[in-house]
Design a protein around this nucleic acid. Structure first.
Length: 243
DNA sequence: GCGACAG
DNA sequence: ATCTTGTCGC
């Protein structure tokens, strides 16, 4: 993938998403998943500083083997649909500090469950050329029915077909395509929005999320990254960049 | 034109 | 996302 600038106007960012979306691989091309990463972004000083948190867990023990935090000035405001342009730069800074490469990354946000099928998980996966899964806590787009109540069960998240969708995706009688899964990761709690980021299918994405589930709503990779990105669990972060 | 809208 | 008090439950 050709490198591009992150400071773009909304119009340019949307045009870029449309150009990149066709490159997102939705087939399973996972390698040996020895390490699973979890990524999340937090903000400090009223949003002036962006704080990227990255954790590496060993599979299948899910033991935490490495964690890094990277801080840098916030450049872009939050605009629905353009989240990746605001958060990926900082995420890359955190990745640069990692001493080992993960075989899979779980990102807090959407994968292809995005208006132009290029949510932050897909964009990051494309940039790093690594398998990624979007694990969102709320919906950006798409519709879904009642979510089963048992842990591990899910209902499809569908959306009207778009130009950004591959021509070979299955379209139902109503012209809709499945872009993700609304997963009951824990009983009695709001469901999770799981969608393929890059280099894996929806069934595989759901499988990995379920396999990384503990007793909490979020899978371990995202849960730990979330905790590190926020102030909670004040863990001693390794190699950070101060401002 | 009127809502909806990841983090 | 972040700001915040109390409250319910394992």
């Amino acid at each position: 993938m050709a490198l591009h600038d992150w400071n773009l106007t909304p119009e340019a960012a949307i045009a870029l998403q449309k150009r990149l979306a066709p490159s997102v691989r939705r087939e399973d091309t996972l390698g040996e998943v020895g390490l699973i990463a979890g990524m999340d972004i937090g903000f400090e000083q009223g949003g002036e500083t962006t704080r990227a948190a990255l954790v590496l867990l060993e599979w299948p023990s899910l033991a935490l083997v490495e964690q890094v935090v990277h801080r840098e000035p916030t450049r872009m405001p939050y605009v629905p649909g353009l989240l990746s342009f605001r958060e990926i730069p900082a995420a890359l800074g955190a990745f640069a500090q990692l001493s080992q490469r993960p075989g899979l990354i779980m990102v807090d946000g959407q994968g292809i469950a995005h208006p132009r099928r290029l949510g932050i998980a897909s964009h990051l996966g494309l940039w790093l050329d690594l398998p990624t899964i979007g694990v969102g806590k709320s919906r950006l787009c798409g519709q879904f029915g009642e979510v089963p109540s048992s842990k591990g069960e899910w209902t499809p998240l569908t959306d009207r077909r778009r130009e950004e969708d591959p021509s070979d995706v299955s379209v139902d009688a109503r012209g809709r395509v499945t872009i993700g899964a609304v997963l009951r990761s824990r009983e009695g709690v709001k469901p999770l929005f799981v969608s393929p980021g890059h280099r894996l299918s929806l069934p595989t994405a759901v499988d990995w999320v379920v396999r990384c589930l503990g007793r909490t709503k979020l899978p371990e990779p995202t849960r730990l990254a979330d905790r590190l990105a926020s102030r909670r669990g004040e863990v001693a972060a390794s190699g950070q960049l101060s401002l």
